[in-house]
Design a protein around this nucleic acid. Structure first.
Lengths: 138, 138
DNA sequence: GTAACTGCAAAATATTTGCATCCTT
DNA sequence: AAGGATGCAAATATTTTGCAGTTAC
């Protein structure tokens, strides 16, 4: 169990610390995305808020998690698939936000569609966020 | 000219004030989306920051502007098309964010594609944000 | 005249930075 | 031992709220 976490950190050249293991564990044992606030709450009073900020930032930089752009303008994070490497995120799957319960999740199996753009634009990536009702809320 | 602005405000049952005309004017005379900060700057020192917040909020509620969810997690706003009414946004077009100059715009003519979701999800809307290089930057 | 809107002050939140101390390697 | 990570304090930045004065209709 713990080994998975530690491996993931090691692979990303991060030293293994309590807070990193704890926060990474939250992501792994949680379907759906987490906002900064969720993490602070679920981690208990154990960690300083600043540590949470710094840890999340580090994870994003290393390609361990990615942010999800939602229209409610809350920053949410979710685990990246393995094909994200340092500085290069490749999360071209679709995200889903439930209008009712607010749960935000990655639909890893749903690829973002290719969008045809007008002349002159050079697309490099696309973010797709679907909102509606999730399994539990409909 | 001014009449357009005032009509739009009237149609939305908003009283016509200096700040609303000014801020709405910024949106109309600007290709691309505006962040709160842009508006404060471009409006000069003329308006209180709080007024900007409240005006933007009112415009969103009335369906005059909509927010654009970008991955850099900055709140940006852009004009809605006419088919948005109070409480009901229907901006199912694609947005484009330039990685180089940061310009964010609505591609009104590009409809968001239909995404096939796994069983159990009831989609209601979809947000699509393409990033890459815009006409001027490529 | 009345209701709505604005500006100012201040509170509440959110995020960032510096530095001394502690932990991982 | 050395470099990196954390906690604490404090500086910034962002957003919200209350209220009195002003403006639109």
């Amino acid at each position: 169990m713990t080994t998975d976490l530690e491996d993931l950190l090691k692979r990303n050249h991060l030293s293994i610390t309590e807070s990193r293991k704890k926060i990474l564990g939250l992501f792994i044992n949680h379907t759906g995305a987490l906002a900064h606030g969720d993490i602070e709450k679920q981690a208990g009073e154990k960690f300083d808020r600043v540590t949470v900020y710094r840890t999340l930032q580090t994870f994003v930089e290393k390609g361990i998690i990615h942010t999800i752009p939602t229209s409610d303008n809350m920053v949410r994070y979710a685990l990246c698939k393995d094909n994200c490497t340092e500085g290069h995120h490749h999360d071209n799957h679709v995200h889903f936000v439930c209008k009712r319960c607010g749960k935000t999740e990655c639909l890893e199996d749903v690829m973002a569609p290719v969008v045809q753009l007008p002349k002159g634009y050079s697309p490099m990536g696309v973010e797709v966020v679907v909102n509606g009702l999730c399994k539990d809320c409909k």
